[in-house]
């Protein structure tokens, strides 16, 4: 179970983010979530779109560098401490979380936490065993 995230290199120049989002919008991509990791000279834009392969092809044709990565998606129950439990489990098992971001799907009253770990299969197994539900790409669209 995994969600396909796309990452795009953004040079720190005015208007780059808008440019990428416009390309994706014009390509009819539904953007579920995005986050930016940044340092002074560049950033990495991470997005969840409904058709990652088509989005990457489109961005590459416009001169951008883009890549697909499987990330772990966790369905967060609407109760206090739900996401904390998942992270504690991973950390206790020595699974390092490189980055994370979350999004909600208000129409379905659902919230998802995305986690980047080195080994998705081991992490998924661990979470499922502890009654934490993980999501695949179709679940978030």
């Amino acid at each position: 179970m995994a969600i396909q995230q796309i990452s795009v290199f953004i040079e720190n120049k005015a208007g780059r983010l808008a440019e990428i989002l416009t390309i994706l919008a014009e390509a009819g991509q539904d953007i579920r979530a995005f986050s930016v990791a940044e340092k002074a000279e560049f950033g990495i834009l991470r997005l969840i779109v409904h058709d990652p392969d088509a989005a990457i092809a489109e961005l590459k044709s416009k001169g951008f560098t883009a890549k697909k990565t499987d990330v772990l998606g966790i369905l967060i129950e609407d109760e206090t401490g739900a996401s904390v439990k998942a992270i504690q489990l991973l950390s206790a098992a020595g699974i390092n979380v490189e980055y994370t971001f979350a999004f909600v799907m208000p129409q379905n009253r659902l919230a998802f936490l995305l986690l980047r770990v080195a080994d998705n299969d081991t992490a998924t197994k661990l979470l499922e065993e502890n009654a934490i539900r993980t999501a695949n790409h179709a679940d978030v669209f």
Partner: peptide, 15 residues
């Protein structure tokens, strides 16, 4: 110029 091989979703890897 960034090459495909150098790029990653991970900031630490690009650094």
């Amino acid at each position: 110029e960034l090459s495909d091989a150098m790029f990653s979703d991970s900031m630490a890897a690009v650094e």
